[in-house]
Write a protein that binds this DNA or RNA. Structure first.
Lengths: 121, 121
DNA sequence: TCGTTATTTCACACTTGCGTTATATAACGG
DNA sequence: CCGTTATATAACGCAAGTGTGAAATAACGA
């Protein structure tokens, strides 16, 4: 799931989203994200490079411009990964509860939420 | 899709995957990823914090230990995002091709793949 | 109550990533 | 050919992320 590495950035996610509506040129993409995120053309170009290297997109030369297109495979993989992860919600009970259930449940209600919030913040 | 920010790290992805098999304690998770990625327990704890703050997991106090659990909502959102992106493969033609198709198609075959590889590397 | 176990936080070093401006390429339209 | 347009790369600064060891907390078990 190296695809997720590349998607860990809002600019690139936006580019992917834009590309999901159809192929686009580097320039169009750069202008779009440039407006939305206030970044320069070279910055956008760099993001495109990351997407290319992660093989989430391909670029095709058309004269002086490059046409970018989403690539299917990595998104299929991502979907598989997600499905695998999400599959567990079909279980009613999970591993740890089964193993060490005794002793845990008793103390739960008291300290759960508030403690969690305190330590997170 | 801030969830994707947190998932842009292999250690955290592994943790999520482990948690998808059922709840687990900070210690168990730390040992698991510690072995696989050779990182210390505090490092693992920090990753758990990121997951917590992204609300991909919740932690529950159980005496001296913390039980971590996957949270459903963010994964549902991720799934929605992915579906939206993937939806475009149902189209046969995309925006740019429709607009500027003339002149593009002609040159395609020649320089596509090799140019792309050269510039990517 | 004390040593141990579980986990987080702190302080800090180091690496990585992202943005910028300037510059290099290359194709276009006259 | 030349100026313009489209993109990518280079060089560099800065902020963010990640790792480490040490220390703070807190519950546990005897």
């Amino acid at each position: 799931m190296e695809a997720l590495d590349a998607l860990g950035d809002p600019v690139r996610r936006r580019m992917v989203q834009l590309l999901s509506h159809g192929a686009s040129t580097a320039g169009e993409l750069a202008r779009a994200v440039g407006d939305e995120f206030s970044i320069s053309q070279p910055a956008a170009s760099r993001h495109l490079r990351v997407l290319r290297e992660a093989e989430l997109v391909t670029s095709e030369v058309d004269g002086a411009r490059r046409i970018y297109r989403l690539q299917q495979a990595p998104f299929d993989e991502l979907d598989d990964w997600l499905s695998e992860v999400r599959a567990f919600w079909n279980h009613k009970l999970d591993a740890l509860e089964t193993e060490v259930a005794r002793g845990i449940r008793a103390r739960r209600l008291a300290d759960t939420e508030k403690n969690d919030n305190k330590e997170t913040h």
